Computed example of a mutant assay.
Amino acid sequence: MDYQLAIENAPDTIPGGTGILLLHPSTGETDRIDTDFLKADTDNFLVISTRTTAREVKQKLDHYDVDETKAEILDTLSIERGYSRRSTDNVHYVSSPDDLDGILEITERFLEETDGKRRISLDSITEMAYYADEGDVRDLIQDVLDMLDEHDAVGLFHLSKGVHDEVQVEQFLGMFDAVVDLDRDGNVSADF
């Protein structure tokens, strides 16, 4: 199954199973790319947020007119910050960004329990690697990429290039079929 892609300088469509690495500067404004990715040609999507709380994700979706009825959110920060949270049908919580097993379990459940065209946004690998061992994070990313392939879904994975050294960036680059690179001035280049 093909998915429309609304990212400048990228192909108009991508096949199911595609994982896209979004490289961006640490101060880069990725919301536009992220929400354009989630808006187009989607029946259900999951936002795995290791950088902002579910409330902030909802505000972003609302601001960019993304249909929240299609959204599930995995908040990895609220509990760690001391907010008591109870999961609902469309908002899930794990204890912290290094609860990789919990993140994987909720991602797998989302893909198994939803139908149609599904997208996943993971924002961000960088925050996850700040909390957890980078090798374990790479294993988790590979597991999610395998699930995208198995379930004919697509994903966008954020990585802040200014925070990781060149070797670390190269290791993540090697895992993805497609790379979208956002520079400090907001210019987008893509390699598919």
Rank of each mutant, 00 (worst) to 15 (best):
D2Q: 12
E8F: 05
D12H: 14
T13C: 03
I14H: 07
T18R: 07
T18E: 12
T18F: 03
T18H: 02
S26K: 12
G28W: 07
T30R: 06
D34Y: 01
D34L: 11
T35C: 08
D36L: 12
D36N: 15
D36I: 00
L38G: 11
K39W: 01
D41C: 05
T42L: 06
N44G: 00
L46T: 04
T50V: 08
R51P: 00
L61T: 03
H63D: 11
Y64E: 02
I73H: 00
L74S: 05
L77Q: 12
L77D: 06
I79P: 08
Y83Q: 12
R85M: 15
R86S: 11
S87A: 15
N90A: 11
H92T: 03
V94M: 06
D101Y: 06
D101L: 09
T107H: 10
E108W: 02
E108I: 00
L111C: 08
E112A: 15
D115L: 09
G116C: 14
G116V: 13
K117D: 12
Y130Q: 14
E134V: 06
G135I: 11
D136P: 00
R138W: 02
I141T: 13
L148M: 15
L156K: 11
H158Q: 09
S160H: 03
G162D: 15
D165E: 05
V169S: 04
E170R: 12
E170K: 11
F176S: 04
V179A: 09
V179Y: 02
V180K: 02
D181V: 04
D185G: 13
N187M: 11
S189Y: 10
A190W: 11
